[in-house]
Amino acid sequence: MSLRAREVSWTAAGTVVVDRVSMHVEPGSTLGVLGPNGSGKSTLLRLLAGLRRPSAGAVYLDGRELAGLGRRTVARRVAVVEQQVGTEVDLTVAEVVALGRTPHRGTWGGMRAADESAVDDALARTGLTHLARRRWHSLSGGERQRAQIARALAQEPAELLLDEPTNHLDIAHQLDLLGLVRRLPVTSVIALHDLNLAATFCDTVLVLSGGRAVAAGPTGDVLTEELIRQVYDVRCELVRNGPGERPHIRFLPR
């Protein structure tokens, strides 16, 4: 058992953002978290990452409550790629990726051989080796997102949480990035807007609406014309002719 949430809620300024959501993800699989804007996708991811403490319920990592584990212990297991991050600091790509070694390094220690090889490996997996010495600020949006994924990989996580990683990327980069994540030997939870990308890349999906989980299960079973109409308030045609009978969705004008 990997990450599991039991009846988690999160309330901000009297508004319930996440409302008693339970979920789990099979080790090694990819879970898509779907739902319209403001449905609580990002907040749920933050609860799963331990960045926010649930106001009710609990998140478990291998059956142990996340809130009871130290930040360092969690960071060695769970890596997070946020939507869009920026920095004032003038870092090279290699230095950004090396940040992923933070939870593995000792108090005084510099980079050891294991750290260097994890960084090199993460750069190679994301195809960034040739950009290692480039400055972060000189990268394109797609390259930055890949560098963040490389940083997350350098953490050597078993669980990878990504919050709308394909935002602002062109279609080729969207496909590359999700293909990359899917090939990684990790358990992934990805918040996504694009239902067709979810249908192509996710093994299972969790659909949120108004902070509540309205559907969960294998992607092909959950995504139906009726569910999409209910949750997103749009009409669509869904055909199952994608690779492996995965659904393909064509939206109709309102």
Binding site: R71, R72, T73, V74, A75, E82, V85, V89, L91, T102
Partner: peptide, 16 residues
């Protein structure tokens, strides 16, 4: 160093 990308990023890198 881990604060480069913000407080939450530092937290996910294991910083209390």
């Amino acid at each position: 160093d881990a604060f480069a990308f913000g407080v939450d990023a530092a937290s996910t890198l294991g910083v209390s």
